[in-house]
Design a protein around this nucleic acid. Structure first.
Length: 279
DNA sequence: AAAGACACCTGTCCGC
DNA sequence: TGCGGACAGGTGTCTT
């Protein structure tokens, strides 16, 4: 479910509740997520304090430190929300429901509750530099950074004969663009999703870069897109759904030209576009 | 090396 | 109302 805007919305929602708080317990109800939650998870994290909550691609990183052991390596937790995951700040009095797989309990009496019906997400942990983790190691640039620009993208797409939509969804090319925002950004850029990635003029790539950034920024400002599972850390939905221009709107009228929005399958993912505006 | 298929898992929705 | 099948925001791994 969550793409970059939903993960970033979650980060902003949970961060103030976690910063400088000591983790008093981690309650695991269902360790079998995409990968099993490591058995040393409690040992690594309980007793340490959260120093910062950052995001890399669609991963959330809780960086922690052990206050009483200055020489020890900092520990971290890596959380991915998969397709159906969400994080909420709860009180200990709130009963967990069926798919609430773990709680990270804090000294404030609040807890960070992870819910993920499909269990495609994960909770991993370790010591040292989390960016060295194999999952984070070979990710492409952040789409909202200046590293992600037309020159970079042209280089990354050189020789790529796959469709542009499949290309911008590859996390090695650029991170954070998932199935919703790929369709949305290509619509804004006027590029047909099936167009070969290496057959796009430089000026159009520059426009695409701009449109990816714009789409993601607008979605973050709206608190993400709630289709079914997603909710913000306070339980409220994200409001970007109302601003979607093509995603899920096949058969509807294009807001630019009144032509009907089409749906095709690309790389086994539903893809929405306007055949008249996107070439 | 790159592209495509498949797997993981549960819930929901649609047609019969 | 019930049941089978398709589909859903992701991504690592295996096969071409």
């Amino acid at each position: 479910m969550p793409e970059l805007p939903e993960v970033e919305t979650t980060r902003r929602g949970i961060s103030p509740h976690l910063i400088q708080q000591r983790i008093t317990n981690i309650k695991i109800r269902q360790p079998q997520l995409r990968w099993a939650i490591p058995s040393n998870c409690q040992k690594l994290l309980v007793g340490s304090s959260v120093v910062k909550v950052t995001r890399r691609a669609k991963y959330l990183i809780l960086s922690c430190k052990q206050p009483n052991e200055p020489g020890s390596l900092p520990s971290w937790a890596l959380i991915h929300l998969g397709m159906s995951g969400s994080l909420r700040i709860c009180d200990t009095t709130q009963a967990a429901s069926k798919h609430d797989h773990f709680d990270i309990e804090l000294e404030t009496g609040k807890l960070l509750r992870y819910r993920d019906p499909r269990r495609f997400g994960c909770l991993l942990c370790g010591n040292g530099d989390p960016y060295q983790h194999r999952l984070l190691h070979k990710l492409g640039p952040e789409p909202l950074s200046t590293t992600f620009n037309a020159e970079y993208l042209a280089k990354a797409l050189y020789g790529r004969r796959c469709s542009i939509k499949t290309a911008i969804m590859q996390q090695a090319i650029v991170v954070g663009v998932g199935n919703i925002y790929a369709s949305e950004a290509l619509f804004l850029a006027g590029i047909h999703p099936k167009r070969a990635a290496n057959r796009i003029a430089h000026a159009r790539l520059a426009r695409l870069v701009h449109c990816i950034k714009q789409t993601l920024e607008e979605a973050i400002a709206a608190g993400g897109t709630s289709l079914r599972d997603f909710s913000q850390a306070d339980g409220k939905p994200g409001y970007f759904k109302q601003k979607l221009r093509v995603y899920g709107l096949d058969g509807h009228t294009c807001i630019n030209c009144r032509h009907s929005i089409s749906m095709i399958t690309l790389g086994q993912r539903s893809t929405y576009y306007c055949a008249k505006c996107q070439t």
